[in-house]
Amino acid sequence: MHQLWKTAFFCASLIGSMSTAQAASSTPTQAPPPNGYQAFFDHLSTEPLRYAAVSSRNGKRLLVGLHPSTAGHVAGELMLLDGTMRPLLSADVEGTAPDLQSGQTGMCQLTTTLKEDSLHLNGPCSQNQISGGLTLTMHPSQLWSQVNSFISPDMSVSAVWLTRAGWNAAITPAPTP
Results as ranks from 00 to 15, higher is better:
residue 3 Q to S: 06
residue 3 Q to H: 07
residue 4 L to A: 05
residue 6 K to H: 13
residue 6 K to Y: 08
residue 8 A to F: 07
residue 9 F to A: 08
residue 10 F to R: 15
residue 11 C to I: 15
residue 11 C to A: 14
residue 11 C to H: 13
residue 11 C to E: 12
residue 12 A to C: 13
residue 12 A to R: 14
residue 15 I to E: 12
residue 16 G to C: 08
residue 16 G to D: 10
residue 16 G to S: 12
residue 17 S to E: 11
residue 20 T to H: 08
residue 21 A to S: 12
residue 22 Q to R: 10
residue 23 A to N: 05
residue 23 A to C: 05
residue 25 S to F: 08
residue 25 S to G: 14
residue 25 S to M: 08
residue 25 S to Q: 12
residue 26 S to K: 07
residue 28 P to W: 08
residue 28 P to V: 07
residue 28 P to Y: 09
residue 30 Q to G: 06
residue 31 A to H: 08
residue 32 P to H: 03
residue 32 P to S: 09
residue 33 P to W: 01
residue 33 P to G: 06
residue 33 P to M: 06
residue 33 P to L: 01
residue 34 P to V: 00
residue 34 P to R: 02
residue 34 P to M: 02
residue 35 N to L: 15
residue 35 N to A: 15
residue 38 Q to F: 01
residue 38 Q to C: 00
residue 39 A to G: 08
residue 39 A to Y: 05
residue 43 H to N: 07
residue 43 H to W: 02
residue 44 L to K: 01
residue 44 L to W: 01
residue 45 S to A: 14
residue 45 S to F: 04
residue 45 S to D: 03
residue 45 S to K: 14
residue 46 T to G: 05
residue 47 E to P: 03
residue 48 P to E: 07
residue 48 P to D: 07
residue 48 P to W: 01
residue 50 R to T: 10
residue 51 Y to L: 07
residue 52 A to I: 07
residue 53 A to F: 04
residue 53 A to G: 09
residue 53 A to L: 12
residue 53 A to R: 03
residue 53 A to I: 06
residue 55 S to T: 04
residue 55 S to C: 05
residue 56 S to N: 15
residue 56 S to G: 15
residue 58 N to H: 10
residue 58 N to Q: 11
residue 62 L to M: 15
residue 62 L to V: 13
residue 62 L to R: 04
residue 62 L to Q: 14
residue 63 L to P: 00
residue 64 V to C: 13
residue 64 V to R: 01
residue 65 G to I: 03
residue 66 L to P: 07
residue 67 H to T: 13
residue 68 P to G: 02
residue 69 S to M: 08
residue 69 S to A: 11
residue 72 G to W: 13
residue 72 G to I: 01
residue 73 H to P: 00
residue 76 G to E: 04
residue 77 E to D: 14
residue 79 M to D: 05
residue 80 L to P: 04
residue 81 L to I: 13
residue 83 G to S: 09
residue 84 T to N: 11
residue 84 T to D: 13
residue 85 M to S: 09
residue 85 M to E: 05
residue 85 M to V: 03
residue 86 R to S: 14
residue 87 P to A: 08
residue 88 L to G: 10
residue 89 L to Y: 11
residue 90 S to P: 02
residue 92 D to V: 04
residue 93 V to S: 03
residue 94 E to Q: 14
